[in-house]
Design a protein around this nucleic acid. Structure first.
Length: 616
RNA sequence: GCUUCGAUAGCUCAGCCUGGUAGAGCGUUACCUUGGUAAGGUAAAGGUCGCGGGUUCAAUUCCCGCUCGGAGCUCCA
C-alpha cells in the first residue's frame, strides 16, 4: 500500500463520474472539510487487513504529532502501478475506516473520478509519504520458492539407448503419458474442467474424507482408509528395513531459529505451518530431513558405518500448500511419507546407493499395485553433474527401459545436484510425483555431519533423500484413480487384494444359515483372511450387487447346498463365475496372492447390520 | 494466495431467474417377503435450505461478508 499524507487547512472535492463498474453507489455531491489530514491511498496487490491495520497505526502516529483529529481517506490509484482488484481495495479501505472510528474519519467515494481543491499547510511535517507492506522482512515464503521461477531449465527426453533429444523434436506418439508429463512440467500446460474421480471414490468406499473442523488438506480416515493406510505403511517400512534402513523417530516440530534449520528452510521450496509457543517460533516439519540430520550430526561416524541409512515413516509431514492446490488425496497439507536418508562417504558410494534405491522404489511401487506403465520418470540434474556422471543417468534410463523426461539446470539451485521422480498421471492428465530420490551435496556441511576416513580425516557425507513410495495418501489416490480408469475403460475396478477392507463376504440365504456362516468366518479369519457377513434381510441379488459395488473379490452364498456339501460355492468377482472349491484350496489360493504382504484383521464389525453406515 | 463456480434430508440432486419457509431417488427404521449369484414389496421418520449480516410486510430464493468444497493460475511427496 502506498499513501501520501497531507495536513491541510481545507479540502473540497466533487465526484464527477464513475470510473469503474464496481464504483460505490452514491449521490455525487461536493464535500468540504477544514483542518484535516488528507490521506491519498493506493491499495496494492496482496494488501490485506494486516496492512490496513499497520497503515492506520502509522497514520494515527503522525496525526498525533501534528495535533490533528480529522482524517479523510482518499482512494487514489495513481500512486501505484500494481493495484489490488477494486473489490479487495474497497474492503481494505473500509477496514481502515472502521479502524479509525476513534478519530473524526471520513472517506471519499471509491471508483469515481473526482475534482478537488487542496490547501496544504506549510509546516515541515505537513507532507509525508509511506509504503506499507505485509510483515516487512518477515515474509515466511522461503527464498527457494521465491526464486524457483527464475531457474533456467533445459528440457530433453532421454531414450533407453542413452540419447538425449530436445523435447520439441521428440516424437511422443508412442508415449502419450510422457507427453502429458512433459507438457505439464516444461510448458506448464494444464486444462481440466471436472473433479478427479478419486474424490468420489474415497468417500464412497469409506476410505477418507475432508475434515472441515481442521485446516484444509488435513483428512480424516475412516476404518477402511486407516486399514489400507496402515497396511501400506507397514509394507513400505518392511521393504526399507530389508534394504538396510534403520528406523528412527524424530519430532514433528522444530525451532525455526535453530542455525542449521534457518538456512535450510531457505533452500527447500515449501511453505510451512508456524506455531508460536512460549516465545518460540516453531515450524511443523515438512519432511524428516532435519530430524534425521540433527540426529546424524550427533553420531560418531566412521567411514566403516557408511552408507548409513536412517528411515522414518513420517506421520505426519506438513506443508502449507496454497489452498487452491489441495484436491482430495492428491495433495494435502498433512501427509504420511516414508523418508529414508543414506549418508555416503563419497560420490561413488552415493551412486552405488542411488542404484539400490532406484530398484527399491520400483519394487515398492510394484508391490503396491503400480506397474511401470502407470508412471513416467523425470530426472533433473545440474549440467555439471551430467558432464561428470553421464553414465549413471544413462544406465538408469536403460533399466527403466522407456524414455524419460530430463530437466537440466545450468547451475545448482537447490541443495541437490540430481533428483528423480516417478510421476503418476491421473485420469485428468495431472501428474503427481510418487517415489523420488535426491543426491544432496550441501546438508552434510550445513548440519555439521561428519565422518572420519581411513586417514582419520573428517569429511561431510553426501546425503541421499529417498521416499520409495512417496506420500502414502498419494498412493491411495493413485490406486483409486487407476480403479476409476478401469471402470471408464470397461474393466472391473478393484484395489490390490491385500489392501481390500473385506476380502471375502458371506451371504446366508436366510438367518437359518447364520451359525454356519459364523463358523466358516472363524475358520477363514484364523487363516488371516478378512471376511464379513451380510446378515441383512435383503434379497440375494441385492446383497451380491452391493458386494460387487464394494469391490469385494470373493462372494460366498451360503444355503442348504453348502451346509450339506462342505465345498464352498465361490463367486470370483474377477471373472464373474461361480465355482465349487474345497475349503483348503480356497484358503491356499488366497494365501498365495498375499503371502509377502502384511496382514491386519477386519477393521469393522463382522456383521453388516451392526456397522455404522459411513457413506452410501 | 488470486480468479471463478458451487453449498437444499445421511448421500446424489431438483426448486431459486420471476421472493409467500420445500421435493425425488438412494440410504435409515418398522412390517411383509425366506429369496440361489448385480437392485423384492408396503409404510414411516428425517430439513434452523452452510454461517453471519442487509434489502423487504415477507428471503432457501435478491445483495454483501465469512467458512468449506470444485476448477483455473501456481506448485509438489
Amino acid at each position: 500500500m502506498r499513501i501520501l499524507q497531507l495536513h491541510c487547512n481545507s479540502i473540497e472535492f466533487t465526484p464527477t463520474k464513475k470510473e469503474i463498474k464496481s464504483a460505490e453507489e452514491i449521490t455525487p455531491e461536493t464535500k468540504h472539510l477544514d483542518e484535516v489530514v488528507v490521506t491519498f491511498i493506493a491499495v496494492e496487490e496482496g494488501d490485506d487487513k494486516t496492512v490496513a491495520k499497520k497503515a492506520i497505526t502509522e497514520i494515527k502516529d503522525s496525526m498525533a504529532k501534528v495535533g490533528c483529529k480529522k482524517l479523510l481517506l482518499y482512494p487514489y490509484a495513481h500512486l501505484s502501478s500494481k493495484l489490488a482488484s477494486p473489490t479487495s481495495a474497497l474492503s481494505v479501505l473500509k477496514e481502515m475506516e472502521s479502524l479509525a472510528i476513534d478519530l473524526d474519519v471520513s472517506r471519499a467515494p471509491f471508483g469515481w473520478t473526482k475534482s478537488y481543491k487542496l490547501d496544504v499547510k506549510g509546516h515541515p511535517l505537513a507532507e509525508n509519504s509511506k509504503v506499507i507492506t505485509k510483515e516487512e522482512g518477515k515474509d515466511d515464503t522461503s527464498e527457494a520458492i521465491k526464486s524457483e521461477s527464475k531457474i533456467k531449465s533445459y528440457w530433453y527426453i532421454m531414450s533407453p539407448d542413452g540419447t538425449m533429444q530436445e523435447v520439441e523434436k521428440f516424437n511422443f506418439s508412442p508415449y502419450p503419458q510422457l507427453e502429458i508429463l512433459t507438457k505439464y512440467e516444461a510448458a506448464k500446460k494444464r486444462s481440466v474442467d471436472e473433479p478427479p474421480p478419486h474424490v468420489k471414490l474415497m468417500k464412497k468406499m469409506a476410505i477418507a474424507d475432508y475434515e472441515p473442523a481442521s485446516d484444509s488438506g488435513n483428512m480424516r480416515f475412516y476404518p477402511n482408509g486407516r486399514l489400507i493406510k496402515s497396511l501400506i505403511e507397514r509394507y513400505v517400512s518392511e521393504k526399507v528395513l530389508n534394504y538396510g534402513g534403520f528406523e528412527v523417530e524424530t519430532p514433528i516440530m522444530y525451532d525455526s531459529h535453530h542455525p542449521s534449520l534457518e538456512s535450510y528452510f531457505n533452500r527447500f521450496p515449501a511453505r510451512q505451518y508456524n506455531i508460536n509457543s512460549e516465545g518460540k517460533q516453531l515450524i511443523l516439519r515438512f519432511a524428516a530431513c532435519f530430524g534425521q540430520f540433527l540426529m546424524a550430526a550427533d553420531f560418531q561416524l566412521s567411514y566403516r558405518s557408511l552408507p548409513l541409512r536412517l528411515y522414518e515413516m513420517t506421520r505426519y509431514s506438513f506443508r502449507r500448500e496454497q489452498s487452491g492446490e489441495l484436491v482430495g488425496l492428491r495433495r494435502l497439507r498433512a501427509f504420511t511419507m516414508p523418508d529414508c536418508h543414506a549418508f555416503c562417504k563419497d560420490m561413488n558410494q552415493a551412486i552405488d546407493e542411488f542404484k539400490k534405491r532406484f530398484e527399491l522404489s520400483r519394487e515398492v511401487l510394484h508391490g503396491l499395485g503400480l506397474v511401470d506403465s502407470d508412471y513416467e520418470m523425470a530426472i533433473r540434474f545440474t549440467e555439471e553433474f551430467y558432464n561428470q556422471n553421464k553414465q549413471i543417468i544413462q544406465e538408469t534410463v536403460k533399466k527403466l527401459n522407456k524414455p524419460v523426461l530430463i530437466e537440466m539446470w545450468k547451475e545448482k539451485f537447490f541443495y541437490f545436484v540430481l533428483k528423480w521422480e516417478f510421476n503418476f498421471i491421473d485420469n485428468l492428465g495431472k501428474a503427481s510425483a510418487l517415489s523420488t530420490d535426491q543426491i544432496d551435496v550441501e546438508n552434510g556441511k550445513r548440519y555439521n555431519i561428519e565422518f572420519f576416513d581411513e586417514q582419520n580425516k573428517p569429511h561431510h557425507p553426501i546425503i541421499l533423500h529417498n521416499s520409495p513410495s512417496g506420500a502414502v495418501e498419494r498412493i491411495i489416490y493413485a490406486l483409486l484413480e487407476k480403479a476409476a480408469k478401469d471402470t471408464k475403460e470397461g474393466r472391473k475396478s478393484h484395489l490390490p487384494f491385500w489392501l481390500s477392507p473385506t476380502q471375502v463376504r458371506l451371504i446366508p440365504i436366510n438367518p437359518e444359515f447364520l451359525p454356519f456362516c459364523e463358523n466358516l468366518a472363524d475358520k477363514l479369519t484364523e487363516s488371516k483372511i478378512r471376511v464379513d457377513i451380510d446378515d441383512r434381510n435383503e434379497s440375494i441379488g441385492k446383497r451380491i450387487r452391493e458386494a460387487e459395488t464394494e469391490w469385494i473379490r470373493y462372494i460366498l452364498v451360503i444355503g442348504e447346498k453348502e451346509v450339506n456339501a462342505k465345498d464352498l460355492n465361490v463367486r470370483d468377482r474377477e471373472t464373474g463365475e461361480v465355482k465349487q472349491i474345497v475349503f483348503d484350496d480356497f484358503v491356499n489360493r488366497i494365501r498365495e496372492q498375499i503371502k509377502d504382504k502384511p496382514f491386519s484383521g477386519l477393521n469393522s464389525n463382522r456383521h453388516i447390520t451392526s456397522r455404522p453406515q459411513i457413506m452410501v
